[in-house]
Amino acid sequence: MLEARLEQAGVLKKVVEAIKDLVQDCNFDCNDSGIALQAMDNSHVALVSMSLSHEGFSPYRCDRNIALGINLNSLTKVLRAAQNEDILTLKAADSPDSLNLVFENTERDRSSEYDIKLMDIDQEHLGIPDTDYSATVVLPSAEFQRICRDLSQLSESVTIEASKSSVKFSCSGDIGNGSVNLRQHQDLEKPDQSTSIELVEPVSLTFSLKYLVNFCKASALSPTVKLSLSTDVPLLVEYKMEAGYVRFYLAPKIGD
């Protein structure tokens, strides 16, 4: 059986909020190392991969591999009943028909209990190899969100160009064009506000802004986001959590 207690329900709330507009139904794969999820969007252009390590739970117990097939809309409805600071306990049997969720406030004088019906989801898993990317950019997640939102007003796609000292986001559309250039800089007082670039070779790739705007719904998970780019490889957009991550992979546009 699965029994996993999360100190802050807000973590799961934010994870689900981050991915629910990209995928509707998905398996939460539970085993002794933690809870993971991999799913593609309907058009197979983007893929989300989420991991919550057992270290993020206390206690965590899962003796066998259990796949929890969940409709994320249903899970969102139930998680709305949890405060961010509530303690959340997930429970499921070995071959479960439902997932049990208990929310307790920090004073422990209120507890709410919900069960969500599970579904059988036949999901294909893709093997994602370790990749040495040509460029890795770390920037504030709020900054990335603003750039994607602003450029999406002008165009369907954005070109991301990483060079040694800067990263440029540019687009062109019917009403005109726009670009945002971020220079590598270190903010010693507020490290989360820094922009860092690790470059093996310069790279320039074009991506759909619709998906990037969607990925930015994960901004609440982390103050920074990491973009990893290589020519003719999907973009990796990673939000790190205390004991896990949400990663998005986005296939590039071609013929640019």
């Binding site: 058009s43 252009v45 893709l126 074009t206 296939a251 013929g255």
Partner: peptide, 14 residues
Amino acid sequence: RIPQKQINDYYKKK
């Protein structure tokens, strides 16, 4: 319009 590739073109089924 710029053509869009799919994730399956890069990563294969496990």
